[in-house]
């Protein structure tokens, strides 16, 4: 697969983040946050924060069941952004400490997983 086809047009700047952050279940996305370091979270956050509203606007134009691979990947990045935003915007310097405790709350299922 060519690098440029990873995400729909207009969202190419997020492609470097897809491999790590576009995990396919909520539990895996939470895990990505847990094992990431501060700079990788900040880099993803900075690159994504202005694109998230545009991504949702784009994805909302089609039914979820009909999303293609690149659109599905974009959806997962948007979902991961929510996890990262909790770390960057709210937990801040406490995130590393907080990450020790979150895994005890095991996500078993969400509508996005099904």
């Amino acid at each position: 697969m060519r690098q440029s086809s990873l995400l729909p047009g207009g969202f190419e700047t997020l492609e470097p983040f897809a491999e790590f952050w576009a995990a396919d279940t909520a539990a895996k996305r939470a895990h990505c946050r847990d094992i990431s370091n501060e700079s990788s979270r900040q880099d993803f956050y900075d690159a994504a924060v202005r694109l998230i509203p545009l991504a949702l606007e784009y994805l909302d134009t089609r039914p979820l069941a009909e999303l293609g691979d690149s659109e599905q990947r974009l959806m997962r990045l948007v979902l991961s952004f929510g996890h990262v935003a909790m770390a960057v915007e709210l937990q801040g310097s406490e995130e590393a400490e907080h990450a020790q405790w979150r895994p005890f709350m095991q996500i078993t299922t969400t509508p996005a997983d099904r």
Binding site: P63, L64, V78, W101, P111
Partner: peptide
Amino acid sequence: EDTNASERFGREFSMTMARDVHSE
């Protein structure tokens, strides 16, 4: 079920926020 991407995002964020609180 999630009707669109925005609802999916809102639901997962809502759970994520509650989980942060409950882990504390």
